[in-house]
Design a protein around this nucleic acid. Structure first.
Lengths: 244, 244
DNA sequence: AGTGGTCCAATGGTCCAACCAATTTCTGCA
DNA sequence: TGCAGAAATTGGTTGGACCATTGGACCACT
């Protein structure tokens, strides 16, 4: 017997219905990110449901990062929503130990190389100019602030992900990035962390500008390799110093 | 000045506090996935908060897939939780269109190749035997059921991810996989979808068994390439047939 | 022993009516 | 006109009530 011939029936789904109605509303009103949604009280009244139900639905959206609630102000759209959108919560097993950081780097190595290659294939002249601009900003920040250019560095990489044409790269690598930096504030004694990766930003850019996917991939791999080296050095030093 | 030295004070964060307490509870009781959490009413009483607040917190967890609520029965843990865990909601714009599927494949291409290479580096003899076992099962299913071996196929790949030693591969690729299959039931008229990828499973295995990372990477790329081809063929056929 | 029926307590789902806390807007005084 | 304080707005929380579903206990009948 085909087990699929008797699917479980759907009995109640109030809050789901609320979300569906909200999707329709956002579409009908052509709301864009940053704009304000109707009040919870108004939604409850219009949809003929309790305010609690509205809140449960909005809590779901907030958890997905689709919406931001500001007490006293209102609820604001944070990302575009459309009927055919897929939300996939990914839970990454954390752990602030060395192993976890290396694991995030392994993921990032794979994605960073692919994104750089795709970027080199698909970049328009305007894209290349934009990436060069980010590179210049980063290099200047690096020089004037003696290597403290994490913000600008990250923006350079993000520009590459965007040009790759696949938003998943930015989303997934951003998660790795956050995971990495959550234990990064001053985790290890490596003061010059990231310095070694500096020159590869320009070589990556040059490969992209030259439309050389394989070159871009290779340079991206070198960049990640320097970060892995830094991490290993830091871990070794930490291990040494913790031997009481 | 370090901006992190003055974190914003937390005036209200009831439901967040509830979640933190719940994490502690799960840890203290060593709850495993599938086990039942305390009743909402009990949680509300113990934590000295309203039941609605408890519900908002649980709604968050439900949205992240950490927990499952069954009316009349209870709330059940669905995944392991630990204090330092990162929850990343992935939002894939688009839907069932060709572009979205190709995007998931681009991610999978990058990760699949890296995982296969790492697997070839790190596999123990026992690991190799396990992978071969999965391969045999899959090949037999493929032959006896005329190519309908999606389940066994997937288990073969999962074995590789596990042996890679990095659980992130399995988690992220699983997300891509689910995304891909959500529109896969019979989306396109390609009846023999996946047939072309069949031989590469064995070549990947052989490279792993031979401890040949670069070979494994290359074969994995070939496998993904066949899937991309199938997808393109299906999309072309669909486009053709929809020209009424 | 097994089958089906009925009842009941437990549990999540929804609702209501308030009040609290943060924010925004308005108002009236200097 | 400028601005401090009051008032309205809005999300956050509370407590209590009832509904719908679940799962077990119990029972009658076969």
């Amino acid at each position: 017997m085909d087990q699929n011939s008797l699917p479980p029936i759907q009995t109640t789904a109030r809050d789901d219905a609320v979300l569906k109605a909200l999707v329709g509303f956002v579409g009908a009103e052509a709301l864009r990110p940053g704009e304000k949604l109707p009040t919870e009280r108004i939604l409850a009244e219009r949809l003929k449901v309790s305010r609690n139900t509205v809140r449960e639905a909005l809590t779901r959206w907030e958890g997905l990062g689709l919406v931001e609630r500001r007490q006293g102000s209102g609820t604001y759209l944070k990302a575009a929503v459309s009927p055919d959108m897929l939300h996939m919560p990914l839970t990454l097993s954390g752990g602030n130990d060395f192993t976890s950081l290396m694991q995030t780097l392994e993921i990032r190595r794979a994605l960073e190389a692919e994104a750089a290659a795709l970027c080199a294939e698909r970049a328009s002249p305007a894209d290349i100019a934009e990436i060069e601009r980010k590179l210049d900003i980063m290099e200047q920040a690096f020089r004037t602030r003696d290597g403290m250019s994490a913000e600008e560095d990250w923006e350079f990489h993000q520009a590459i992900y965007r040009v790759s044409g696949n938003p998943l790269f930015e989303q997934i690598i951003a998660a790795m990035h956050e995971l990495f930096h959550r234990f990064w504030e001053h985790p290890l004694g490596v003061r010059d962390f990231g310095h070694a990766s500096f020159p590869y930003h320009r070589t990556i850019y040059e490969c992209i500008a030259a439309r050389d996917p394989q070159g871009a991939r290779a340079e991206a791999l070198k960049l990640i390799a320097t970060v892995e080296d830094d991490l290993k050095r830091g871990a070794a030093k930490l291990k040494l110093s913790s031997q009481t």
